[in-house]
């Protein structure tokens, strides 16, 4: 088990993160203090959750570019509900967010499953549509902190056992996703559909439906994150989380989720997101302009995909017996 881990992508990523932390701590030792690490984790929680949702979609050889728009639309809707009915308890709003997010994901899923449109086209379309609808529902207006109810804003900040609820949400999501992909037939089907769609049909897996479910799950996660984002930053407007979908895909790619489907782990996605989160949080404290962040994450994506491609390269069928033994 340990041997396997050392050779794995995740180990490489852990190593990269440790080196990164080491470098940062030479400049600013306070960065690796537990308290600061907890705050980095909190700051990365939404990215982690979205990366997990994106991961199951990518596992099935699809991609969802609409997650950030979904997040923004759901966030705006729960924000508006909160303004209209400030007494509605947060759990109800969470339920609304999950349902709306899942519904938006289901629209993607149905177009991919039943109409057979390539996922990148579908979600490119819904990316602009969902974002545009925010304008329609809000009339372009902002929802500012003072319009939101106190409980609405307090929920993600509420501390339990030293960690804010936002971080706990990420932890719970990680556990649920672990159970989903490792211990449920649907989760295994994600891998099967992406790894070998042709063979998946032979084993009685409904490829289209599996993809549909991946989109619904990614959508539901985006919905939850919509509420968390709006309540955490205490503001909602048309452009929130604009372009965030690419950061989410970047987290997955850095985490070793193969864009060709079928390969990737929960640990990888989480580490990929953390890697980006650490860079984002570290730049200001080590006196590097935050304007470096984009270029750094871009380079990280390219390096990650190059490294992953090397390890994924398929071994050919080996005919000569001696070559097989020599391995």
């Amino acid at each position: 088990m340990i041997k396997q881990f050392i050779k794995s992508r995740e180990a490489l990523l852990v190593l990269a993160i440790l080196i990164l932390l080491g470098l940062i701590s030479t400049r600013f030792s306070g960065f690796i203090a537990p308290q600061n690490m907890a705050s980095v984790f909190q700051d990365t929680s939404i990215l982690i959750m979205l990366a997990l949702g994106q991961m199951v979609v990518i596992l099935t050889r699809c991609i969802d570019l609409s997650v950030a728009s979904n997040l923004a639309l759901t966030g705006m809707v729960v924000g508006l509900i909160n303004v209209a009915a400030p007494d509605l308890p947060v759990p109800v709003l969470l339920l609304v967010a999950i349902t709306l997010g899942a519904f938006l994901g289901a629209i993607n899923g149905i177009l991919v499953w039943k109409v057979d449109i390539p996922p990148i086209v579908v979600t490119l379309g819904t990316l602009t549509i969902y974002r545009g609808i925010i304008f329609l529902v809000s009339n372009g207006a902002w929802i500012n902190a003072h319009e939101m109810s106190a409980s609405f804003k307090a929920f993600p900040r509420y501390e339990l056992l030293g960690l804010p609820v936002l971080s706990w949400m990420a932890v719970v999501t990680i556990i649920l996703f672990y159970l989903l992909v490792v211990r449920t037939p649907l989760g295994r089907a994600f891998y099967a559909v992406g790894g070998n769609p042709h063979a998946a049909v032979y084993t009685g897996i409904n490829v289209g439906f599996t993809r549909f479910m991946a989109f619904v799950i990614a959508g539901a996660i985006s919905g939850v994150c919509g509420y968390l984002w709006v309540s955490r930053y205490a503001v909602a407007y048309v452009d929130i989380a604009g372009g965030f979908e690419l950061e989410v895909v970047a987290a997955c790619v850095i985490g070793g989720i193969s864009i060709a489907g079928g390969i990737g782990t929960i640990g990888g996605a989480v580490l990929g997101a953390l890697f980006l989160g650490i860079i984002k949080n570290a730049l200001p404290v080590v006196d590097i302009s935050p304007f470096w962040q984009l270029a750094i994450s871009g380079s990280a994506i390219i390096i990650a995909v190059a490294v992953n491609a090397r390890s994924e390269r398929k071994k050919g069928r080996i005919i000569l017996k001696k070559a097989e033994h020599a391995q």
């Binding site: 037939p185 295994r188 089907a189 891998y191 099967a192 790894g195 070998n196 042709h198 063979a199 998946a200 032979y202 084993t203 009685g204 897996i205 079928g262 390969i263």
Partner: peptide, 17 residues
């Protein structure tokens, strides 16, 4: 034809579905 999945374990391949 191979109807197996390279990235699943042997047991998972046997019992998928």
């Amino acid at each position: 034809e191979t109807v197996l999945f390279d990235d699943l374990s042997v047991a998972e391949n046997i019992f998928i579905g």
